[in-house]
């Protein structure tokens, strides 16, 4: 207990320590395949496998109109109460913008 309390406030030695500080906070995760997640970080490991709670997933789909060849960007949103995310799809992790 007391062995990790002081380290938590000061010890930022490696990039993953920044992720540790986001535990129990809402984070933004950018994933391969034009996917984004926003949710509360409950757990992670060195591969950036994660468990997120109250997740909103945003998928950006580009549809090409056959006739006009116009690109139509469509945004699909999904929600999930509890989600395990495999780390190999993760591009970046960040606290969500306050906006």
């Amino acid at each position: 207990m007391d062995d990790h309390a002081p380290l938590e406030s000061t010890g930022i030695e490696e990039p993953l320590d920044l992720v540790r500080l986001s535990l129990d906070e809402r984070i933004y995760v950018k994933l391969r395949g034009d996917r984004e997640l926003r949710g509360r970080l409950h757990a992670y490991d060195g591969h950036l496998n994660m468990v997120l709670g109250d997740v909103e997933e945003t998928i950006t789909v580009v549809d090409v109109n056959e006739e006009t060849m116009e690109e139509v960007i469509r945004i699909v949103k999904r929600n999930c109460e509890m989600l395990f995310v495999r780390g190999d799809g993760v591009i970046l992790v960040s606290p969500p913008s306050r906006a």
């Binding site: 062995d3 990790h4 380290l7 938590e8 993953l16 320590d17 540790r20 535990l23 129990d24 409950h42 757990a43 992670y44 490991d45 468990v51 709670g53 999930c80 109460e81 509890m82 989600l83 395990f84 995310v85 495999r86 190999d88 799809g89």
Partner: peptide
């Protein structure tokens, strides 16, 4: 095969979030 998994949607009531967060902190320590 684990490597083809993108997500696993979990039953939220069966997840002890406090325990998970503790375990994640400890694993780093």
């Amino acid at each position: 095969r684990g490597s083809v998994v993108r997500y696993v949607q979990l039953p939220a009531p069966s997840v002890d979030m406090a325990l998970l967060q503790d375990a994640a902190r400890r694993e780093r320590q």
